[in-house]
């Protein structure tokens, strides 16, 4: 059920390589655990992060979660639509509910991440 082309972190985020940039979102498993998302706080375009940094937060009715990036680089775009329609994260977490686009500093950051089947296994076993 998870897109084969993407890579996945233990923090339940997905990373999609597109040329020299990488799109980041949270997984369907993550949005389901969180419940209805009501606020999404994203970093400013132009800011830079290292792999492992916190880049924002997602608030649902029941809890707040920090978003961590597994890749480093400069933020080239954020999903502005989430300001008015945070529910997109629930409705289409692997598509319209994307969060941030990075210009990758080092494509090898993706190497340690899980493939779709591994991630699915990971969510089953915790």
């Amino acid at each position: 059920m998870y897109p084969e082309t993407d890579r996945y972190s233990k923090e339940h985020e997905w990373f999609r390589l597109e040329g020299d940039s990488c799109v980041v979102g949270i997984t369907d498993f993550a949005q389901d655990e969180l419940g209805e998302v009501v606020f999404v706080d994203l970093p400013e375009v132009g800011s830079t992060f290292e792999a492992g940094d916190e880049i924002g937060t997602i608030e649902s009715v029941k809890a707040v979660s920090e978003i961590y990036t597994a890749v480093g680089g400069e933020v080239t775009a954020i999903n502005e639509a989430l300001t008015d329609a945070p529910e997109k994260v629930n409705e289409d977490p692997h598509g319209d509910g994307w969060l941030v686009r990075f210009k990758l500093a080092s494509p090898s950051d993706l190497d340690g991440l899980m493939k779709a089947a591994e991630y699915e296994e990971f969510t089953r076993n915790g």
Binding site: E11, H12, E13, I26, A30, E33, I58, E59, K62, A63, V64, S65, E66, I67, Y68, G126
Partner: peptide, 20 residues
């Protein structure tokens, strides 16, 4: 994504606690 928030009524225990 990491669950840092808790938690009305103590209900919203993190995934990890739930699994442990």
């Amino acid at each position: 994504m990491t669950y840092v928030g808790a938690t009305e009524m103590g209900v919203w225990l993190s995934v990890i606690v739930t699994l442990l």
